[in-house]
Write a protein that binds this DNA or RNA. Structure first.
Length: 538
DNA sequence: CCCCACCTAC
């Protein structure tokens, strides 16, 4: 082949960019390197770093960086930004910050992309305070936010539950003359949807179209989800048809969304129908879609169908995910009969997920529970590249399982280890000086009770150490993790029973019955009781 | 020529 002579480094980079598989890309990269007369430049090295980063091949990246310097190419701002992004996406925040510091030591000034990436990865990992700090550092460095940066921060604030702040920034963005684009609108619509303000979401969808934006695949997905969650399943299907009419080719995730929506609406047959429609379209299912259908089967206790589906997944070469395992564990916890429970156990084993080994090897708690916490920490370290929501889901299911199985000490220790690993960054926060919020609203019943008990014990210990107690604690229960209906809440009820049993001096305010408030002297006197340390055992 | 944002699994 004469390819080596005819391919210059510019063209080589164009080809390299197209290669998805990092092994193929790396093979091509090193093949090029061996061609006489060919020399990689900063662009090809940077592209290669990005491809390896997407696949989390950090060992190979470091080797490549050494060669890059050896080849006389210094990493530039784009290389560093890609590195930060790669580490951040894999949840290696310390390493991402290491690159951030290193680039500055090398005299490379962070730009808007650098800060934008750092803001995003920290917010997504649950460190919103660091993200906001980065935003301020960016502005101090003389970099004003552009549409891209605004969109990132609006999304981060909204996802962290600060919807008002997100909206404020949207208006600030417009006032600054930054024009929202399609992605900005998609973010705004999705935030409304997440806050369950479906009317507002659909209004924004119309606003977006009046502003001259044509919906894209992401917009359609969000709108379909909004319609589905509002109970308008037929309208969601109509959007699917419109999307096809606009020449978008439905992909696996879109079918998956319809499977999920029908499944959540408890119409298993429809969910299954869309799953089959996807197969008929020649698409291979992905794990989340299988999870959706699996969840639908499990909810109505169709365990045989669940078994067949799980088997099918393995047949497709799909690896059951943390969510798959979480679904099965929750089903096991809720099982009414022992035969259903052991069948769930069979399915859990079948997944082959490391979480199963983790559960099976859970030690009997020693005197201080340190062995259980270590066991959990080690597992969470292993799962560390999983996103926080998935980890939270699993930990929630594990705690609920232990709690309902009467293994309260285990449940408490799992909670403590998970809290330490930042799996629940919003659960216990200091609203203002000595005024604390305990937020239980996305937890299962067992987790809420465990989390509350251990958090109150933590307040007690802090008070005994420092001599200063909290002035006020708000215990927010919301409506429970699985509830879509406002009003009745199992979590609220369980929490109230626990508080009453231990005579916690609480009251409710402004008719908000989902929030229990304790404050002042009665609260501090209560925290001194030694039984606070053992509440979780009840 | 190379980098950053939105949707999808509870």
């Amino acid at each position: 082949m004469k390819l080596g002579c005819s391919l210059d480094v510019y063209q080589a980079n164009q080809v390299l960019k197209q290669l998805q598989d990092f092994n193929v890309a790396l093979g091509f990269f090193y093949w090029l390197k061996r061609q006489p007369g060919f020399k990689h430049d900063g662009h090809t090295y940077t592209t290669m770093v990005g491809i390896l980063g997407r696949s989390r091949q950090f060992g190979a990246i470091n080797k490549l960086l050494d060669q890059m310097v050896g080849d006389g190419c210094q990493p530039n701002i784009v290389t560093y930004n890609r590195l930060i992004h790669s580490y951040g996406r894999a949840n290696y925040l310390k390493e991402a910050m290491g690159v951030f510091n290193q680039m500055q030591n090398m005299g490379c000034k962070p730009d808007r992309v650098t800060f934008c990436t750092l803001i995003d990865i920290h917010a997504k990992a649950g460190f919103l305070d660091v993200a906001i700090d980065m935003y301020q550092r960016m502005q101090k460095a003389g970099l004003s936010p552009d549409t891209f940066t605004y969109s990132v921060i609006i999304n981060c604030l909204g996802k962290a539950g600060h919807l008002a702040a997100a909206h404020k920034l949207f208006y600030e963005m417009v006032n600054q003359g930054c024009v929202p684009n399609l992605v900005t609108f998609n973010i705004m619509i999705a935030l409304q949807a997440k806050a369950r303000n479906y009317q507002g979401a659909l209004q924004l969808y119309r606003d977006m179209q009046s502003a001259g934006f044509e919906p894209d695949k992401v917009t359609y997905s969000i709108v379909m989800e909004v319609l589905g969650h509002s109970g308008f399943l037929d309208e969601a299907e109509a959007v699917f048809v419109e999307m096809k009419r606009k020449n978008w080719v439905p992909d696996e995730p879109v079918y998956g969304l319809l499977v999920d929506l029908w499944g959540k609406a408890s119409n298993v047959e429809k969910a299954w129908q869309w799953y089959n429609a996807m197969l008929d379209a020649g698409l291979r299912p992905n794990v989340p879609t299988c999870n959706s259908l699996l969840s639908a089967f499990l909810r109505v206790h169709r365990l045989d169908d669940a078994y067949n589906l799980l088997h099918g997944m393995l047949g497709f070469g799909l690896n059951p995910s943390l969510q798959t395992y979480t679904l099965l564990l929750s089903c096991c916890t809720d099982a009414q009969t022992s035969s259903n429970m052991s069948f769930c156990g069979k399915l859990m084993t079948l997944t082959g997920h490391p979480a199963h080994v983790f559960l099976l090897t859970m030690p009997t708690p020693g005197t201080d529970g340190q062995n259980v916490r270590d066991h959990v920490s080690k597992f969470l370290d292993k799962m560390h590249s999983e996103d926080r929501e998935s980890k939270r889901g699993l930990v929630d299911a594990v705690i609920d399982f232990f709690h309902k199985a009467g293994l309260k000490e285990e449940a408490g220790s799992v909670w403590e280890a998970a809290a330490q690993k930042n799996v629940y960054p919003d659960a216990v926060t200091e609203k203002s000086s000595r005024y604390w919020l305990v937020n239980l609203h996305v937890m299962s019943e067992g987790t809420a009770v465990t989390a509350l008990s251990r958090s109150l014990a933590w307040f007690r210990r802090q008070m005994l150490i420092s001599g200063i107690g909290p002035s006020r604690i708000d215990i927010i229960t919301g409506w429970g993790r699985r509830s879509r209906v406002t009003g009745a809440s199992m979590v609220r009820q369980a929490v109230q029973e626990l508080l009453e049993m231990f005579c916690f001096p609480f009251f409710t305010e402004n008719g908000n019955t989902g929030c229990f408030v304790g404050c002042g002297e009665p609260l501090n006197r209560w925290l001194l009781q030694s039984y606070v340390e053992r509440m979780h055992l009840l």
